[in-house]
């Protein structure tokens, strides 16, 4: 079994987002693996470790320019066996998914893992798009993947509970909370080994994006917080009831 983890390269979650001329101001930004993808990778590596002989390799794939290579190296340092970088600016989700689908078609993976959303575009779209391009089944809101007696078992979160599902390979799993507890860490040994692991660079296929971001806006200005005396909780309740009319 071969697992592919799709990783997105995003600004660290504490970054103060600013724009210059309608583009993200990248000065001083620390780039990281999208948190969900880091957890996906962690789970994929656990599956490999816990099922020797069944999971042969874990590969990561990224659509992005060469400047994303430190993020890819980080994934290799955490433990991915190899990496593929599709050498193109990630225009939109449709473009990115089409590129990934193309690579998956030629390399044949059994489980494809994507995160529920990237912390930059917040699209929640790439994973399911890949599945439709390839006509693979997909399961969204996956909180666990395990291998039991050779079968791949998936837990899907539903409103107020969970479903335990099984499905044939290959498929796409779109993962969310629960998939792994803590992201795997890159130990010294991993960092050393990552240097010699291969990053295959693939040129993109011709795909026309379906959307364009035309401008960015900052969130509407917040009014300053109105403080209420801790000894007068009734005042707050009165405001919520009679001014805000929300309770």
């Amino acid at each position: 079994m071969k697992i592919l983890v799709c990783i997105s390269n995003v600004p660290d979650t504490t970054t103060r987002i600013k724009f210059v001329e309608n583009k993200l101001d990248t000065t001083g930004i620390q780039w990281v693996i999208n948190p969900w993808d880091e957890l996906s990778l962690t789970r994929a590596l656990e599956l490999k470790d816990n099922n020797p002989g069944q999971v042969e390799a874990v590969t990561v794939a990224h659509v992005g320019p060469a400047s994303a290579e430190p993020t890819i190296r980080k994934a290799l340092a955490i433990g991915a066996d190899s990496a593929i970088r599709i050498n193109a600016e990630p225009h939109d989700a449709y473009f990115v998914a089409a590129q990934l689908a193309e690579v998956i078609k030629s390399e044949q993976f059994d489980i494809i893992m994507c995160g529920i959303e990237s912390s930059d575009f917040n699209g929640s779209t790439v994973g399911s798009m890949i599945a439709e391009f390839l006509q693979y089944p997909s399961v969204s809101a996956v909180s666990n993947i395990s291998i039991e007696n050779g079968d791949v078992i998936i837990t899907r979160e539903i409103d107020g509970g969970k479903e335990i599902l099984s499905l044939p390979l290959p498929f796409v799993a779109i993962v969310q909370k629960g998939i792994a507890k803590e992201p795997g860490i890159a130990a010294m040994r991993g960092i050393m080994m990552a240097r010699s692991k291969p990053i295959k660079v693939v040129e993109p296929t011709d795909v026309e994006p379906l959307t364009d971001v035309v401008s960015y806006e900052m969130p509407p200005e917040k009014e300053a917080c109105r403080f209420i005396d801790a000894d007068k909780p009734g005042e707050l309740i009165d405001i919520l009831q009679n001014e805000e009319k929300i309770i």
Binding site: Y94, G123, S124, T125, S128, M129, E132, V139, I174, T211
Partner: peptide, 22 residues
Amino acid sequence: NNTGKALAPRLSVKLGAGIGSG
């Protein structure tokens, strides 16, 4: 929601329709 996130992207590819999410 979870259902929309599972379906909209697949529909996007099936219909060649661009998606605005969230």
